[in-house]
Nucleic acid binder design. Structure first.
Lengths: 206, 206
DNA sequence: ATCAAGTCTGAAACTTGTTCTAGATTAGCG
DNA sequence: CGCTAATCTAGAACAAGTTTCAGACTTGAT
């Protein structure tokens, strides 16, 4: 039986069990170090040591620190998506549900602010060489938001609104992480941008 | 007593003429290198050499590469604000004028994509130690947008909308710079978010 | 079991941001 | 002018991301 985990990359060569285990150890070490001290605390030598892997091997699995942290984020996002699925948001309107979902995610990040710092900084600092991975994170986020909206076939307009919501989400996180915006401020920004959803979903229109 | 050589905000001790000239040379070299190869091409040793200043001096003027690039951005923003003032946007509604203004700025950035890369990456990668400077950039951007709206006394709601517009602006730039979104996509995102302005200022605002 | 190809390890080397030091220069002041 | 503190310079040194390499280990196919 092929242990197909439909998680990430398209057609990467299948990993042996030991390789899968290595990959897991690395991601775990990365998240642990990140939780402790954020982006700067994730030092490649330390990640290698913590996960009992040679530095060269670490770089074979993740070609840069940013790749590693983005992969860490993919990992965490899957987790979160699972959690959110179990308790779907309760709001009346789509806008309310999306805002509630994002605020829930935000509270989760607040519990591990250093980890959030590492992941989000990596995400926005990533250059073109990490585009595929960053794009994957973006798609995953889109799925979460569309889930919250409860839409099967979003219109192009609604997809634009979702894109803008994602932009706001990332950027608001950055301002919070760098101490330039309060938690309350982020909440307001999220609620503000979510109003766009009402704009793009015409009331009674069947 | 260490002399603060920070850039703008409160009361930095006055610089002598030669110091002002040094600062200018440094910023010029920074922008030039950035224009050539983006964030990575701005290497502190090269900036120092290009601007005929010792490495230690460079660090006295700008305590990190990110500080330097954010200051470069402040510089460019002032330029842009001046340019925009001369030819105010023509749109009917506030939303249109803001979108037009941002698209104009976007086109300016497209002419120097590497410079844009360096500045925007620095801006979003900046940690807490650069908050004052990043905040200054943010305030300047806010002023530009409010100018385009033509508002003297924005309501809190409108300020929230402006914040969200700025979030979208930054994040959309990032996705464009890293090749994950097309120019057309960025245009759509900007136009989409600008609709928020209509939401917060109904009909004819006196 | 054996061989070839691919993978992992440990360690050193290289790159670039950042810090430090000792001595030269400059600015302000009496 | 001559002094003192601040600033500037050249260059070494340090830190962390990344690359490289020779040799040991695994894996898969025969």
């Amino acid at each position: 039986m092929p242990a197909e985990v439909s998680s990430a990359s398209p057609a990467s060569p299948p990993l042996t069990e030991r390789q899968e285990a290595r990959r897991r150890r690395i991601l775990h070490a990365s998240a642990q170090l990140a939780s402790r001290g954020g982006f700067d605390a994730v030092q490649m030598r330390e990640v290698a040591e913590s996960s009992q892997v040679a530095l060269g091997t670490l770089y074979r699995y993740f070609p840069s620190k940013v790749h590693l942290l983005v992969a860490t984020m993919q990992d965490q996002l899957e987790h979160m998506h699972g959690t959110l699925r179990k308790k779907p948001p309760q709001g009346e309107s789509a806008a309310e549900r999306v805002a509630e979902t994002l605020m829930r995610a935000f509270r989760a990040l607040q519990r591990e602010p250093h980890l959030a710092d590492a992941m989000v900084r990596a995400l926005t600092f990533a250059d073109r060489s990490v585009s595929p991975e960053v794009d994957q994170v973006s798609r995953q986020t889109t799925v979460i938001i569309l889930d919250a909206m409860g839409l099967e076939n979003p219109t192009p307009e609604q997809l634009s609104a979702v894109r803008v919501i994602e932009h706001t989400w990332h950027s608001a996180l950055i301002t919070w992480l760098s101490g330039r915006a309060s938690i309350a401020q982020v909440k307001i920004d999220i609620e503000t941008v979510c109003r766009l959803i009402d704009l793009t979903s015409p009331e009674t229109h069947e």
